[in-house]
């Protein structure tokens, strides 16, 4: 069953409790962080508006990072994008391909939120959700979270008339459904991130076709090679016989 988060950016007040809960709950080493709170204020004094961007993995259903990952270190499970770090080759394709600029290379490996796989497998909830004092985060079944997000967007309109849900369809639907105070463009989010078309062609067509062609050609060449070599040997024998008939000295020496 697909799981998802709701992240209500209208409510987030930038306190960083989520980031520290994530850090301490997952015992992330120094230098590793899955959530960054980024001040996002627009306008000029005194006509200002803004809030806090939560820079974290949005768990795209059509995840470009998964599409390009050559080792399967990144994979989808329960609607979330997991990361099996030991399997990572450090190719950085995910870093380049993420439409939200999320994965970071730390010690040569891709690093990002994996939706608290270990914690949820152990029966807990994601660390960030359970600690958020602003109750800006929720976690549960995706369909339920979508409903929650819509309700939250409706409530947010009391303060932000343009409040809206983001992630219902983007990138195949996000596993972190955002409740935005304004249009995505205003908040620096792509209204619809480009689907990883080329990456899908690459991984879905070019790679299997290549493997297939190489394999088939190698087999065909093996079979044809045996036949052709036999032909060539026969040909050489014919030439030899013909030369012996002629009685050429050089040829007889060779035999």
């Amino acid at each position: 069953m697909a799981q998802a988060f709701v992240l209500d950016l209208g409510r987030c007040i930038g306190c960083e409790a989520c980031a520290l809960a994530c850090k301490t709950g997952n015992e992330l080493p120094t230098g590793v962080s899955y959530i960054e709170l980024i001040e996002q204020v627009r306008g000029s004094f005194p006509d200002l508006e803004g809030g806090f961007d939560n820079h974290r993995c949005l768990h795209c259903q059509d995840a470009a990072c998964v599409a390009v990952c050559p080792t399967g270190a990144l994979y989808k499970e329960d609607g979330l994008t997991r990361l099996n770090t030991p399997a990572c080759s450090g190719c950085e394709y995910c870093v380049t391909s993420c439409p939200y600029d999320v994965p970071r290379m730390v010690d040569g490996a891709s690093t990002k939120c994996d939706g608290c796989k270990a914690t949820t497998d152990a029966g807990g909830g994601p660390w960030c959700v359970s600690t958020c004092p602003s109750k800006a985060l929720e976690y549960g079944e995706r369909s339920e979270m979508l409903r929650t997000a819509r309700t939250r967007a409706e409530a947010l309109r009391a303060h932000y008339p343009n409040a809206q849900v983001y992630g219902e369809t983007q990138a195949g639907g996000l596993g972190v459904i955002l409740v935005l105070p304004d249009d995505p463009e205003v908040l620096g989010l792509p209204r619809d991130p480009d689907p990883p078309t080329v990456a899908n062609v690459w991984q879905g067509v070019v790679q299997p076709v290549s493997i297939g062609l190489i394999g088939a050609t190698a087999v065909a060449a093996g079979v044809a090679g045996v036949i052709a070599r036999r032909n060539h040997m026969a040909e050489l024998r014919d030439i030899e016989e013909a030369e012996q008939l002629v009685g050429d000295g050089d040829s007889s020496e060779e035999a």
Binding site: V68, S97, T197, V198, V206
Partner: peptide, 27 residues
């Protein structure tokens, strides 16, 4: 993202070609 994938497609197809040439070469 697209540039990387395109480069990878070119790289893969080029290698496919070179590998097929190699097979022919060995043949």
């Amino acid at each position: 993202a697209s540039g990387l994938a395109a480069a990878a497609v070119i790289h893969d197809l080029s290698m496919l070609a070179l590998t097929l040439f190699l097979i022919g070469h060995l043949y």
